[in-house]
C-alpha cells in the first residue's frame, strides 16, 4: 500500500492518521565492556486510531519517553516496528511533530520565528506567516509574538513549543511530558488549552505523562507501561484502559476516581485510601 493518500490538503480534519506498534522492543547497549544489552521496552503491541488521544503512563525510567522517541524517529526500535498511517517509521518522520518536556526554543529567535521553525519545508512565506500567527493566537501568545524566549514565562514558552509542533501540521502529535515542568495550576490550565487546541486542530496524539490525572483528563485511552517483577526484563503494556466520558471531564467524578485508583496501583503507589483493599493486594499485602 502506497501512501499517496490525499494528505496535501493536510489542514483538513482528515490529516489525523493511525499509529501501529508491532511488537516494538528497545534494548540499550551496555555502558561499557561486552555485557548483555539492557532491555527497556519489549513486546509493545498497540493500535491507535486516527484522531485518538492515547496517554502513556509509567514510572520514571520505564521507557515511555523511549517509546515516543521511536515513534518520532529520533530513536530506532531494536525489535518490531512502528507504522504511521500504515507505513513504517524510519528516521525523522515528517508526519509527526514532537512537543518536548522542555520548551527547547531557540533563544535568539522571537516566539514567532520559533513557531515558524515548525512549518513544513517548502511552505510559501506568506502562507506560513498566516499559519504561524493563527497558531500563536490559538495558544494565547498573540501579544508576545515578538518576544524572545527569555522574556516569557515557562508556561508561555511551553505554549510556544506546542504551537511550533502544530505548525508542522502533524498527522501525529507526540507530547513528551509537555507540562511536567510547570507548576500545578499552570499545568491544569495547559491541559484545558490542549483540549481547545485539539478541537481546533484535530490530530492523533500520543501523550507521555507521569500524571495519572492528566492522563484521565486528556486521553481516550490510557496505556500503563510497567515491568513484570521477576519476569522478563523490560517494560511492556501492563494495563490498557478506555476512559469514559466526553472531554472536558469533571476532574472530581467518581468514575475517574476508580480508574485513578487502578492506575495508581499499577504504578505501585500506595493510595493511603479509605480502607478498601488495593486491587493488587493479593501480591502486595499491605503491612501494618
Amino acid at each position: 500500500m502506497t501512501t499517496t493518500a490525499p494528505r496535501q490538503n493536510a489542514r483538513d480534519v482528515s490529516r489525523a492518521v493511525s499509529i501501529d506498534f508491532d511488537g516494538v522492543g528497545r534494548a540499550f547497549a551496555p555502558e561499557r565492556g561486552s555485557g548483555a544489552a539492557r532491555p527497556v521496552l519489549r513486546d509493545i503491541d498497540l493500535h491507535v486510531e486516527p484522531g485518538e488521544v492515547v496517554a502513556i503512563l509509567g514510572t520514571s525510567g520505564c521507557g515511555k519517553s523511549t517509546l515516543l522517541r521511536i515513534t518520532a524517529g529520533l530513536d530506532a526500535a531494536s525489535a518490531g516496528r512502528v507504522r504511521i498511517d500504515g507505513s513504517p517509521v524510519s528516521g525523522i518522520d515528517a508526519r509527526t511533530a514532537v512537543g518536548f518536556q522542555e520548551p527547547r526554543l531557540l533563544p535568539w529567535r522571537t516566539v514567532h520565528d520559533n513557531v515558524a521553525l515548525g512549518l513544513p519545508r517548502g511552505t510559501p512565506r506568506s502562507e506560513g506567516a498566516v499559519r504561524v500567527e493563527k497558531l500563536i493566537d490559538l495558544v494565547g501568545l498573540g501579544e508576545f509574538a515578538g518576544h524572545r524566549p527569555r522574556e516569557i514565562s515557562g508556561g508561555m514558552a511551553q505554549r510556544a513549543s506546542l504551537a511550533r509542533a502544530l505548525a508542522r501540521n502533524p498527522g501525529v502529535l507526540l507530547l513528551d511530558e509537555p507540562f511536567g515542568a510547570l507548576d500545578a495550576l499552570t499545568r491544569l490550565k495547559m491541559q484545558d488549552l490542549l483540549l481547545d487546541i485539539l478541537s481546533a486542530e484535530p490530530t492523533t496524539v500520543l501523550l507521555v505523562t507521569h500524571d495519572v490525572d492528566e492522563a484521565l483528563q486528556l486521553a481516550d485511552r490510557v496505556v500503563l507501561l510497567a515491568r513484570d517483577e521477576g519476569g522478563e526484563p523490560g517494560a511492556t503494556i501492563a494495563q490498557l484502559l478506555t476512559v469514559p466520558g466526553a472531554r472536558p471531564r469533571d476532574r472530581g467524578s467518581s468514575e475517574l476516581a476508580e480508574l485513578r485508583a487502578s492506575l495508581l496501583d499499577g504504578l505501585g503507589i500506595d493510595r493511603h485510601g479509605d480502607g478498601r483493599q488495593p486491587l493488587a493486594s493479593a501480591t502486595a499485602p499491605r503491612s501494618l
Binding site: 518520532a72 529520533l74 525523522i92 515528517a94 511533530a97 518536548f100 527547547r104 531557540l106 535568539w108 521553525l117
Partner: peptide
Amino acid sequence: RQLVEAGRAFGLGGPRLFATVQLPAVI
C-alpha cells in the same frame, strides 16, 4: 544537545541544522 535534537525533530539536518541551530548558538 536538546536544541540540536529539537532542530532534528523538525526536519533540519546537515547545513540547514548548522545554519539554524548550531551556528547561531556559538555566535
